[in-house]
Structures are given as C-alpha cells and as structure tokens.
Design a protein around this nucleic acid. Structure first.
Lengths: 277, 277
DNA sequence: CGTCTCCATACCGTCAGGGTATGGGCCGCG
DNA sequence: CGCGGCCCATACCCTGACGGTATGGAGACG
C-alpha cells in the first residue's frame, strides 16, 4: 500500500464523495475511482458503499480511514524529523502556548545550556490545539501541555507543576473582591462559565473580551491569570480543577538533548515546588 | 514519501550495502541507488555516507531509518486490520503464550459471550516475543503480556493479576524440598540463574531441558510453574520479582468487542483475587 | 418520465521507475 | 607501483502504471 493511495482514500473517507475528493487532491475523478477500486481488489475487501448520492464507508473502510490517518501522520513526522536532523545546527524545538509553561521556562532555559547534552533551543509559540499536533507531526520535539485537559496518549511525559484554578471576572464584578470563590458561586450568577460553556471558543483574547463585557466568566489555571488584561481580576477557585503542566514528547524519542531538557525541567520544577513551600 | 521508497531505505539502512539491499528487494542495484538519491534530493538531506566499502548512515539517515520502520509497521498494521475488518464474521484475536494467561482465560472465555458486544474469539498461541509484535502489527487485537518484563509503550493496558515467582529445579536438587527459597540461595550454587543469565534462550522446552540437566535454574511466574515437566519441582521464591499479567491492546483501539473483552477480563480477575483471599 | 447527479468504463498519452551496460574512485595485494 | 576487484554512480532504453478526456449507466427527485 503506497502512501499516495492512503492519502487518496483518506480524502474520499473525509469527503464521502469521490468527485469532491478528487478536486481536493487536484486530480480528475476517474483515476481516483480506479485507485480506490485497486485498493479494494488488493485488500480483498469492500471499502466503500457506492450510491448515486455519494459514497459511505463500510466497517472495513472505517478501519482503513483511521489507519490511513496514522500512516500519513507517521510519514509527515518522518519527513519533518529527518529534515530537522539533517540541519547543520542541532536544535530542540519546544512548543508552548503563551503562559503555558507554569512560569518555569525562564529558569529552564537558563539552566539547560549548562548540561553537556544541551543544544540550541527554539521556542514555538502556538495555539492550544497546535502544541500536541506539532509534536506528533515531528515539527516540535517537546511541548508544554496541560493535564488532564490534553490527551497524552502516544506521548512520554513528565509532570512539572500542579496548580489550582482562578476565576477571571471584570474588576467591578460582585465576586471581584472575594478572597476565594467556589464554582457554585460562579454558577449562581446569570453568566455562563467557560470552559463548561462555550468551550468551542479557544482564542484567549476573544475570551477575555467576553469577560470584560460581562458575558462570560472564565476558569483557568493560576499561571494563566498572570496574562490577563488589567481591567480584569483573578479570584482563586477553591474547588476548581487542579491542572498539571506536563512536558510531553514522542514516546519513542531517544535524543540525548531532549532527555537533558526533560531532566533540567524536572529539576527546575522541583526547585520551584520547594520554594513554594 | 512513498512507502516503497521507505522500504528501500530501510533495506539499505539494514544492509549498509546498496548491492545487497537491492538483491534482498529483488531488484537491480542502479535503480535502488537512484531511488535513495531521489529521496535525499526531495528531503534536502544527505542520508548516506558513501565509500567504496559500502555505505554508512548520517545522523539524518539514522533518524529516517527509525521513522521508516514506524511507517512500515503502521502500513502493515493498516493492511492487516482492514483485511480483518472486512471478513464476514467479526472476530477478536487474542494472542498469548501457553500458560501466559494467569489461569484466567477459561473463565474469561466462559463469561465473555454473555456480553452484548461480544464476538467470536480466536486464540493465537505464540512465543514470548511474538505477542506484542502481533498486536502492533494488527494481526491480533489484544495480548496477554507480562509486566514489567515486556514493553508496554504504545499499548493501552489493564493489569489482571499479580503473582510471585517460583524457582524451577530438578527433583533431586538440594533446594527441592524447601518451603521457600531466596534468590541468594539460588545464586549460592554453581548453576546460572535464568533470566539473569542466558536470557537469550527463550524456548521453554529448551530451558526446562537445561534445568533437568542441572545446568540452569529458572525463576518464573507461579502460573508458569503449572506447566513444567514432572521431573522438575517448583519452589516459591520469597524475594522473587512480582509479575503482573496484563491485557494489552493498541492504544487507539476503539472496538466495542475489545472493550467488552477487557472489561470481562478485569471482572474475572477481580473475582479470582477475591476468591484467593 | 425526464433530468440531474455521481460513479464506472473505455481509451489514450506521458513519465516514473526498473533493467542492462559501463564508468570511476578506493582499497588491497602482488 | 601498478593491477584487479569491489562498490556506487551515470547513461540509456523500455515498459507499464497513473493521470487525463470522453462517455456510459444507475439511482434520486421533481
């Protein structure tokens, strides 16, 4: 099975329409039809149920769609990792979202170069959903993720720091002066609470704008509270979900530079934890 | 990058000799040379260091060799899983080595069909190293593995039962009559102890033959002791490593039939544990 | 019942990939 | 020091796989 065929099938499985899939692949419809038929013949399995309204996946087709996605991911990762390994200067690419490092990154970056296996560190700031994807795709070596909000399957990981939650409210909000609040206090008001409600919004600026307008209350990890606008106030949430900042890398990674980074980060986190006590 | 090219590169990376790799691939040397060059051009990276004695891998080549193996595994798994999903009768393929089920399998097989998501179960009896490979390759859906002896990375897993170790010795052995022994007792004798020594031997019959000849002492999980020949004796090892029989499946598996099997197995294991108390 | 939509088939051209022949560098040996 | 052998690269040719265009046929819908 060639990757080209798998990419074809993946497109068809997404579009459920051979013509549209062909257009997306930049090719004509007949060769795509034939390519899928050929796949079916070679596998000895029907993958598509054809009708005059489009196509649907058979159970085997569903399986192949999932497997094909994995293969294509692996191929993309192979390309990216090989390219990066071929660059003259070895680098460690670290993906994080702004404020997503639990405040540890400055100390980590300061301590890391002292390690004998250390290499240049490149930081990639990206959105929430991007980070895990970059690591899976081989574009980044390691990412700061938030457990349990993000899926760690397929990653090796090292928990760094745990922290509580704060509620972000406008400065004039009735709860703004409180020492701490409970989730029930937030829900007593008329305003929806993110991420329970409207979790489809992921842009921080947009979220905070809604908070400033009094249309939303946001519950977020403490460290994210450092980044909010001056017209907003953070109040600790007593029963808020605890969040752990974890370092995550591809499970099979064997790079010494990466291992050194993880160990440095763990040591720095331990130091911070001790200092907090 | 096509899978064909990755297979080519994988062969070259293993042989470190383009001519031999070509022979193994059933093709002539020049097209293989060109295929690798093309890969290098497309990736913009040198993969091989050529000399008149053969080739060696550059660092980028090492990376690609690992990544290519992963891709090829994923492709093989995709083929196997799709083919199996296309078969008329859905089946759950369970891989285990003889005696590797901790004695739970009969009860699991008895209880499983009652579950609404249950399907036919096919058992594949195989060697020690085979089991994990079969699951990774998509030939089996789930395997009984022994933790911590086997690598569970990339697998979802459910621990079933833990058990102690026994030493397997000939009937006439000085320790054969003891109630229990310690590892130090075994090492006091002149005979090497498996798996610490000679762990390259994996065939059970061969191992037991060596035990019978007084050339080896084997430390194994209790349940494996059921299977030894009548001329051998099992003595509990007080400080032997505890072994856990775990059920392992591909992390991303989503089949209902598999989930039902795992849940049934966990329930049966819990029942056994209670009964033991 | 006509028409539209969508997939399959027929037929054709092109180029990628594989084969054979041969060249060129490096090493080892006489 | 020169010769031969080993191994990879280049040159050249050919086949067939893959993609394109044209068209057929089956089901859905008005």
């Amino acid at each position: 099975m060639e990757t080209r065929e798998l990419a074809y099938f993946a497109a068809v499985a997404e579009e459920l329409h051979i013509g549209r899939a062909a257009a997306r692949l930049g090719m004509a419809q007949p060769p795509l039809s034939r390519a899928i038929q050929k796949l079916e013949r070679r596998l000895g399995v029907r993958l598509l149920e054809r009708s005059s309204r489009g196509v649907t996946l058979t159970p085997a087709g569903e399986v192949l769609a999932r497997e094909a996605a994995k293969v294509l991911d692996a191929v993309a990762a192979a390309t990216a990792r090989t390219r990066r390994a071929g660059r003259a200067d070895p680098r460690l690419v670290v993906a994080l979202k702004p404020g997503g490092d639990g405040g540890l990154l400055p100390d980590i970056l300061a301590a890391y170069p002292a390690h004998p296996d250390a290499v240049e560190v490149e930081l990639v700031l990206c959105g929430v959903a991007e980070r895990a994807r970059l690591v899976r795709a081989g574009t980044a070596d390691v990412a700061f993720l938030h457990s349990p909000y993000e899926d760690l399957t397929g990653f090796g990981s090292e928990p760094l720091v745990s922290e509580g939650s704060v509620a972000v409210v406008p400065a004039g909000h009735p709860l703004a002066g409180r020492e701490r609040v409970r989730l029930a206090d937030l829900d007593a008001g008329p305003v929806p609470r993110w991420p329970r409600d409207h979790s489809e919004i992921t842009d921080p600026a947009a979220l905070l704008q809604l908070v400033a307008l009094g249309r939303l209350v946001v519950v977020a990890p403490e460290s994210a509270g450092e980044l909010v606008r001056r017209d907003l106030v953070c109040v600790p949430v007593a029963d808020g979900p605890p969040t752990t900042v974890v370092l995550a890398w591809p499970e099979e990674a064997r790079s010494r530079a990466l291992a050194a980074f993880v160990r440095t980060a763990a040591a720095v986190a331990k130091g911070h934890g001790d200092a907090d006590r």
